[in-house]
Design a protein around this nucleic acid. Structure first.
Length: 597
DNA sequence: GTAGGGTTAG
């Protein structure tokens, strides 16, 4: 008898292919996926309803949504599994509207959605604007009876819980009528309550629920942290039966946000397991407070421990650097990016541009900006603000023109940059022109922030009467920022009577801000009205107010130097004052007249 | 279903 002889490798290579196919959706390596894709085509499996969803999932995991769509488009009659895979891919790649487009496409092709379809669509509904869509899906779900699958109502509670207080009430209603609840239902409900400040009610559910896991405890802990109730948070943290890396990171982040870096550091040093998120929290915490040496040191330690910063780490630390001007750390992060990867995503580049601009390296900011291949609206806005805050009004306006030419339409944030640019460059008429064009040409209704910019624009330009008229005729309620900006203009232009009137408004809005009172007191002093100065000071003292003195800081060679008004504590104080004197002389020579106080 | 994340007037 003749037994067919197989080559020894034949069975194993086929098994290997099957293995690769079954794990394909978990594969994160694009080259491997492409190889398996080629094998799939050779094996004529590229229309196979079991293989196609896995292939779509794999491409989606590698953020290759275009390839996923290509695979999908080649399927003549996709079934519900294939549609679901495509909806999931769009959602994972933050393409909510495409996820819904796929859903509508599926319905018009007569393919009936299943319970998975609805859970996946609900994941695409992020935030306030989606409330009515979630309601619509909710109605569909009830009609089709998909609530019997616990994943579906859980997904509903989760989505409702993330879209504002109104959503939370809807989630509560659903939670109440659910016949069966699992731990995820309770956790999602508590998460929603915590997110929108209903801490008491969250705690009530926490106490009431039959069993709790890490997520339950950590969600509740985060609630105390986000509410700024750190003593309650710490007490809760100590009471926890078990703590994992998320519990420790949450409490560290709480102290870090509260500015208590000593406590944050103590807990950070004590925690048994640290991951990238933990390091991000502690480094950003130090960086935000401007504690450069600790931030730099820990960043090095993180890299020495073999951890490579990801997008979250980079964006978070760069934002912290931008806030307090830590150029050295920002540069260090930039160096890591260049060392670890070939190209960075737009979000990371935007954070770099912002960091360089806020740290004063405008040239470097512009270099990074020019290098961004796929600029988005935020890229343009960030660069525009960079030019604006450094007084390069013309450059900012040129950039605005270039941005429009490239087909970007400005948003509300763009106009804050434009108005700010005009203010800092003294372009009052241009600023007013742009302000008027907002609604007229671009359909953007000015917000209180925009009015703030214009009040500043007019105020600094000495057109106090116009600014005052604008404040009084604004369609939105003027806030404390508007009035204090106006008060600043009164000081510059010695408008004593107007200032007194402004303070009355301010006192109503933020009665306890000593800055406002001391500003008015300075205005009276400048006008020589010493009786009013004494009066103001007396008022402040009897209210127990003390104005914290402002300070500026700069980082030179990894050391932060801080300066206050009339400060002589710096070792090189003499040299510094000498330089200030020289600068003042230079300024006077070019026509600048300083305010005499 | 839980921890870190980009632009915004004084």
């Amino acid at each position: 008898m003749c037994v067919p002889v197989r080559k020894p490798g034949w069975v194993s290579s086929r098994r290997l292919f099957e293995q690769k196919l079954s794990d394909l959706h978990k594969c994160g390596n694009l080259i491997q996926i492409k190889q398996v894709h080629a094998q799939i085509i050779r094996a004529h499996l590229h229309h196979d309803p079991y293989v196609v969803p896995k292939l779509i999932a794999a491409f989606s995991l590698c953020r290759q949504i275009a390839l996923a769509v290509k695979v999908f488009d080649e399927i003549p009659e996709p079934n519900v599994h294939v549609y679901n895979a495509m909806i999931r891919a769009h959602t994972q790649n933050s393409q909510s509207s495409q996820a819904f487009a796929t859903f509508f496409n599926m319905q018009s092709n007569g393919v009936l959605p299943d319970n998975f379809t609805y859970s996946l669509l609900l994941k695409a509904c992020l935030g306030k604007t989606w409330f009515h869509v979630i309601q619509m899906l909710h109605t569909h779900i009830e009609k089709c009876g998909f609530c019997s699958d616990i994943f579906v109502p859980n997904a509903l509670i989760d989505s409702y819980s993330k879209c504002g207080p109104v959503g939370v009430s809807a989630a509560k209603k659903l939670f109440m009528v659910m016949g069966v609840r699992d731990i995820v239902s309770w956790n999602s409900m508590i998460g929603g309550l915590v997110k929108f400040g209903e801490l008491g009610e969250a705690r009530h559910l926490f106490d009431e629920m039959p069993e709790r896991d890490f997520v339950t405890w950590n969600t509740m802990l985060d609630g105390y942290v986000k509410a700024g109730q750190m003593s309650e948070a710490f007490e809760f943290f100590q009471r926890m039966p078990e703590r994992n890396v998320v519990s420790w990171s949450t409490i560290v982040s709480g102290y870090s946000k509260a500015g208590d870096m000593e406590m944050a550091r103590m807990l950070f040093d004590k925690m048994p397991v640290k991951n990238l998120v933990t390091w991000t929290i502690i480094i950003s915490g130090y960086a935000k407070k401007g504690i450069a040496n600790e931030a730099n040191c820990l960043y090095d330690q993180m890299e020495e421990a073999g951890l490579k910063p990801d997008d979250g780490t980079i964006i978070s630390i760069l934002a912290a650097c931008a806030e307090s001007g830590l150029l050295r750390l920002g540069e260090k992060v930039h160096a890591s990016i260049e060392r670890n990867r070939y190209r960075c995503c737009t979000e990371v580049s935007n954070a770099l541009v912002d960091m360089y601009a806020k740290c004063g390296s405008l040239d470097e900011a512009y270099k990074v900006f020019e290098g961004i291949r796929k600029k988005d609206l935020i890229s343009w806005n960030v660069m525009l603000h960079g030019f604006a805050t450094h007084g390069h009004g013309e450059k900012a306006l040129q950039l605005f023109a270039r941005m429009k030419k490239k087909g970007f339409s400005p948003d509300a944030v763009t106009f804050i940059g434009i108005l700010c640019a005009c203010t800092h460059a003294g372009l009052v008429e241009e600023g007013l022109h742009y302000f008027q064009s907002m609604d007229r040409e671009y359909g953007i209704v000015p917000q209180v922030e925009h009015y703030g910019c214009v009040v500043d624009l007019l105020g600094r330009g000495g057109r106090l009467e116009e600014a005052f008229r604008l404040v009084n005729s604004m369609p939105v309620e003027p806030n404390a920022v508007i009035w204090s900006s106006f008060l600043g203009a009164c000081r510059v232009h010695n408008a004593v009577d107007l200032a007194g009137e402004v303070l009355d408004h301010l006192a109503k809005l933020e009665s306890s801000n000593p800055g406002n009172f001391s500003m008015l007191s300075n205005i009276y002093a400048a006008a020589g009205n010493w009786e009013s100065v004494a009066n103001m000071r007396l008022k402040m003292r009897s209210a127990g107010m003390q104005k914290a003195s402002g300070a500026s800081s700069i980082e030179v060679n990894e050391e932060v130097h801080e300066f206050k008004v009339f400060d002589e504590s710096h070792p090189q104080s003499d040299k510094i004052y000498h330089m200030i004197g020289k600068l003042n002389q230079d300024l006077k020579r070019v026509g600048y007249v300083p305010i005499v106080r």
